[in-house]
């Protein structure tokens, strides 16, 4: 063996020996000083999806499980991504009655695709909605609609949002209902609605009909046809924009049928 090789071997040997010693000490210590974790906590934590989205109101899945394990009066149905299945599992571990939640998914209230609306100016700034919002509310002809730079798609933890022809579109099957996008959208045009009750108004324009019609081919013009058609008075036009009261809505889809601008979408 060449002589210059020996110091290298010594160096490698010393580092390996000390690293090994540290590892052995840590392994022994972890057995020796093992602390029992609350079984309930571990079981609860295993049920939770681990997305750490914060929709339950706690800092993450860990802290929700810890809070549940300590305090049985906390609701077991706070996990929205987990939905009814996780709520049932949590309730079983906690030994309380199952209170299910309806699964919610995000809906973008705009259908202003590149074919339906136009731009009012060329925007060459930073490609985020928040930056575009700072310059006269974005470059779209409609001042209420989707900006199309995908801030919502960026924050979505499961990549359920994609940009199709300039408008954010939510994939209902992928969406876990955490609601992060609703807080991110600078226009505030994303809301959470029940997954099995999907009738939504794909417009947020509050201008009068004559104006909004010029701005977008599929804008709500406030004609009140839906209001007149709705059998349960669940839909009403407020500020030239139709709004659905989901507590009254029976999801018949008649409003979507009569809407002259094709603004209301029934996704049943």
């Amino acid at each position: 063996m060449p002589e210059y090789f020996i110091p290298i071997l010594i160096a490698v040997g010393v580092i390996t020996a000390i690293g090994l010693a540290c590892a052995v000490i840590l392994v022994v210590a972890s057995k020796f000083f093992a602390v029992k974790v609350d079984e309930k906590y571990a079981a609860l934590r295993d049920c939770l999806p681990g997305v750490n989205c914060g929709a339950c109101g706690y800092a993450g899945c860990d802290s929700y499980a810890a809070a549940l394990a300590e305090n049985s009066s906390i609701a077991t149905n706070l996990c929205i991504p987990g939905g009814a299945i996780v709520a049932a599992q949590l309730a079983e571990i906690m030994g309380v009655d199952v209170t299910t939640t309806s699964k919610k998914t995000a809906s973008v209230h705009c259908n202003g695709t590149c074919d339906n609306t136009d731009i009012k100016a060329n925007y060459q700034g930073i490609h985020t909605c928040r930056a575009a919002m700072l310059t006269y509310g974005g470059n779209g002809l409609c001042n209420y609609g989707c900006l199309g730079y995908g801030d919502c798609a960026e924050v979505c933890p499961v990549d359920a949002i994609s940009l199709v022809n300039g408008v954010a579109v939510v994939d209902i099957d992928t969406c876990i209902g955490c609601g992060i996008c609703t807080k991110t959208c600078p226009k505030g045009i994303i809301s959470m609605i029940d997954t099995d009750k999907r009738v939504s108004i794909k417009c947020s324009n509050k201008e009068k009909g004559a104006v909004s019609r010029k701005e977008c081919k599929v804008a709500c013009i406030g004609c009140k046809k839906c209001e007149a058609t709705c059998p349960t008075d669940a839909i009403s036009v407020v500020d030239n924009l139709a709004v659905i009261d989901y507590d009254k809505c029976i999801y018949c889809g008649k409003c979507a049928h009569v809407c002259p601008m094709n603004t209301i979408h029934s996704e049943k």
Partner: peptide, 18 residues
């Protein structure tokens, strides 16, 4: 770095226990 990192881990375990 190696020694400090493992030492802190060890200290944490001991504190957690006792």
């Amino acid at each position: 770095i190696l020694v400090i990192a493992s030492l802190v881990q060890l200290v944490e375990m001991i504190l957690k226990k006792f």
